[in-house]
Amino acid sequence: MSDQIVLNNIRVYAYHGCLSEETKIGSDYRVDLKVEADLNLSATTDDLKDTVDYVHLNAIVKREMAKASKLLEHVVKRINDAVIEELESVKSVETQIAKLNPPIMGDVESVSVKMTKLRD
Rank of each mutant, 00 (worst) to 15 (best):
M1A: 12
Q4N: 04
I5E: 08
I5V: 15
V6M: 07
L7Y: 06
I10C: 09
R11G: 03
V12F: 04
Y13G: 03
Y13E: 00
A14E: 07
Y15G: 03
H16Q: 05
G17S: 07
C18G: 03
T23A: 10
T23K: 14
T23F: 00
I25R: 13
G26V: 11
S27K: 11
Y29W: 12
Y29H: 09
V31Y: 01
V31R: 05
D32R: 02
D32E: 02
K34L: 10
V35A: 10
E36D: 05
L39Q: 02
L39Y: 07
L41G: 00
L41V: 15
S42E: 04
S42M: 08
T44H: 00
T45F: 05
T45D: 06
T45Q: 06
D47Y: 04
L48I: 15
K49E: 15
K49V: 13
D50T: 14
T51C: 08
Y54T: 10
Y54L: 04
Y54R: 08
V55I: 11
V55S: 14
L57V: 11
L57E: 07
L57R: 08
N58M: 05
A59S: 14
R63E: 14
M65H: 12
M65S: 12
A66I: 01
A68I: 02
S69E: 12
K70P: 03
L71F: 14
L71R: 13
E73H: 04
E73C: 03
V75S: 05
V75T: 15
V76I: 05
V76N: 00
K77Q: 12
R78L: 11
I79L: 01
N80C: 14
A82N: 10
A82L: 07
V83N: 08
I84P: 06
E85H: 09
E86G: 02
E86M: 11
E88G: 13
S89L: 13
S89C: 08
V90Q: 00
V90S: 10
K91L: 14
S92D: 04
V93C: 15
T95P: 01
I97M: 06
K99N: 05
K99E: 02
K99S: 05
L100F: 06
N101T: 08
P103Y: 10
P103R: 07
I104P: 05
M105N: 12
M105W: 09
G106I: 07
D107N: 13
S110R: 05
V113S: 01
V113P: 00
T116C: 07
K117A: 15
